[in-house]
């Protein structure tokens, strides 16, 4: 990847909470079209890391550079305007709006039209919204309220919303949590397809190792706030250190 400027570049990122170092000295790059997985035990600092990249938390120190410009400490809404789409561990959508309206809202905001107090919002960006929904396979349910959708479908809606600003980087925190095994594989295959087609860099955290090893181009392993491994899936899988703290050395079930 050397020679090509990475989409996201993180250097020496650190954050403490009341003396506890949640994240320290984390550095990595994500290239366009690359699927990068961030894994590690609970409490290793994955969510803290994510929230610093998405603007929900401000880092104590370190650099976060998106396409050559710093976004460290920027607000979530500024980071969105710079071309970052985000999905959350617990899906965050607008429950009182329909699936289509959720995506329309993102498109309206992206076009800078959210302050219009008079025009009917439902007529805005209909075609673009439906195109995004078709891309994630949610067009048939476009008119349903997000508040009553199945969890797996909500994850798809979130993906469509996250794609509404034509992002260069997608941040996905546990994108398949709470989904059935087949759904997980399907969703991540979809993400991988979109990422490759549109040269979007994707950084995701994941608990399901099947998903990680099937879809990640590269894997980062975080433990107690530090990166302990960074490499292709097969290398990480056989890394002794990673097996010790996370994957396990002697999995009785797998050995049988």
């Amino acid at each position: 990847m050397s020679g090509i400027e990475p989409v996201l570049s993180v250097r020496e990122l650190a954050k403490s909470f009341g003396g506890v170092r949640a994240v320290q000295g984390v550095s990595f790059d994500v290239a366009a079209g690359e699927m990068l997985a961030l894994i590690g035990p609970n409490g290793a600092g994955k969510s803290t890391c994510f929230n610093m990249l998405g603007g929900q938390l401000a880092p104590d120190s370190g650099a976060v550079t998106l396409l050559g410009r710093s976004i460290a400490g920027a607000k979530p809404r500024e980071i969105w305007r710079r071309g970052v789409g985000r999905t959350f561990q617990i899906t965050a959508t607008f429950a009182s709006m329909s699936v289509r309206e959720n995506v329309q809202m993102a498109l309206i905001s992206q076009a800078g039209g959210a302050w219009n107090p008079l025009a009917p919002a439902r007529a805005r960006h209909v075609a673009a919204a439906e195109a995004l929904l078709a891309q994630v396979g949610m067009l048939e349910q476009a008119g349903r309220a997000c508040g009553i959708l199945a969890y797996g479908d909500l994850k798809r809606v979130e993906l469509a919303i996250a794609l509404a600003n034509g992002p260069r980087l997608l941040l996905m925190d546990e994108p398949t949590a709470g989904m059935a095994p087949q759904e997980r594989i399907a969703l991540m295959a979809l993400v991988a397809r979109i990422a490759k087609a549109e040269a979007i860099a994707v950084l995701f955290t994941e608990h399901d190792m099947d998903v990680v090893f099937a879809h990640a181009d590269r894997v980062l392993v975080l433990d107690r706030g530090r990166l302990i491994a960074d490499g292709p899936p097969h290398a990480v899988r056989n890394d002794a250190g990673v097996r010790a703290v996370y994957l396990g050395t002697d999995d009785g079930a797998e050995g049988a």
Binding site: P181, D208, D210, D251, G252, E254, A256
Partner: peptide, 14 residues
């Protein structure tokens, strides 16, 4: 349970 690999594979995804 330990002796039944199929059962584990089906439900425990280990």
């Amino acid at each position: 349970l330990k002796a039944d690999a199929a059962l584990r594979a089906q439900y425990l995804s280990v």
